[in-house]
């Protein structure tokens, strides 16, 4: 049963990155779009996330609940040493979620909306940045569980060049996803061309940001390459991701928007797979070399069994309903 729970943890993280990530991306793309095209971008982006944005963020809650029910030691350690980035991420989540709601449900359209827009777009950058920093800290062995000073324990456990580069990479991934997903939400050819062009820019940025992560890992002696290439699956994942990027650019040129979406998803899944598989079954690496393993450091056996059943049962209820929502949402009016 522990494998079922682990699989759910991975899948919900993955879905959060793909769906929730695209939501964050919508805000980032809006922030960096040229001024005169901003309002149109806002409309397009809203149209591509609209009614499912709420559900997209449930995956984070599912992942967190799995963590604290199934792997309480990991949850406790992460929330202790990464307190500060978690709080910043939380503030980002609050600011983003509420401003998104406010700007869509406010009955009057006046200058208040400028404020909502500013909060929404900036928090859309901050939240995934810190999400990336947190993920980086967990897998790169930067959490100092032997620290004796405040700085070492609560600041330098997460603040490092490598973790920040992972944060930036996450931001780029999010905006890449959003830029690709949004193409299908418009009908107007002119808009489509513009969006495809933008998707290409963000695809290029993935190479750049990924390159930075590798460069920093070499500079700071983090054996990232070694981790990924330790197993044959790592190679396969990285090659698949690379092939998908090439295929994605090709399908962008050929205007096959549905296919482009699939490739974009595949790229992100492969990247996550390569990174998480490299340590499996370990999830958290500490600075002193100790590790917390998904297969060893879980809560009680009985809890894991019940949790697995709850998750399986939950999926039976949720998934058909969710797919129908996404399906009927895709049938709606385009702009």
């Amino acid at each position: 049963m522990i494998y079922v729970v682990t699989a759910f943890l991975w899948v919900s993280t993955c879905l959060y990155l793909i769906l929730g990530g695209a939501d964050f991306g919508a805000g980032i793309v809006e922030l960096f779009s040229e001024k005169k095209y901003k309002n149109q971008t806002k409309k397009i982006m809203y149209n591509s996330i609209g009614p499912i944005w709420e559900a997209n963020h449930m995956w984070l809650i599912i992942a967190i609940v799995i963590l604290f029910v199934g792997f309480p030691k990991m949850y406790a350690d992460v929330s202790n040493y990464l307190h500060i980035p978690l709080v910043i991420m939380l503030l980002g989540i609050i600011a983003r979620g509420t401003s998104f709601t406010f700007r869509n449900y406010d009955a009057v359209n006046d200058k208040w909306h400028n404020l909502y827009d500013v909060i929404f777009t900036y928090s859309s950058v901050v939240t995934p940045l810190f999400l990336g920093i947190i993920s980086g800290s967990i897998v790169s062995g930067s959490i100092d569980n032997q620290a004796t000073s405040f700085q070492d324990a609560y600041i330098f456990s997460w603040l490092s060049w490598f973790n920040v580069s992972v944060g930036l990479f996450t931001v780029v991934i999010c905006s890449f996803l959003a830029s690709v997903y949004s193409i299908q939400s418009v009908n107007n050819q002119e808009d489509k061309t513009k969006l495809r062009k933008r998707a290409k820019i963000y695809t290029t940025l993935i190479f750049v940001a990924g390159g930075i992560v590798f460069a920093v890992s070499v500079w700071k002696n983090i054996p990232l390459l070694e981790w990924i290439t330790k197993q044959i699956y790592g190679y396969i994942a990285v090659s698949l991701a690379t092939i998908s990027i090439i295929a994605l650019i090709y399908s962008l040129n050929k205007k096959k928007d549905q296919l482009t979406k699939v490739y974009a998803g595949l790229i992100v899944v492969m990247i996550l797979f390569a990174v998480s598989y490299s340590h499996f079954p370990n999830l958290i690496l500490f600075k002193d070399g100790t590790k917390l393993s998904l297969l060893k450091d879980f809560g009680a056996e009985s809890t894991i069994n019940m949790l697995a059943w709850a998750l399986l049962l939950g999926s039976v209820f949720i998934l058909p309903f969710l797919f129908y929502l996404i399906y009927s949402f895709n049938q709606r009016q385009k702009i």
Partner: peptide, 10 residues
């Protein structure tokens, strides 16, 4: 949470 999580997490 470290101790209670697995017990009252259901």
């Amino acid at each position: 949470m470290e101790h209670a999580g697995p017990i009252f997490g259901m």
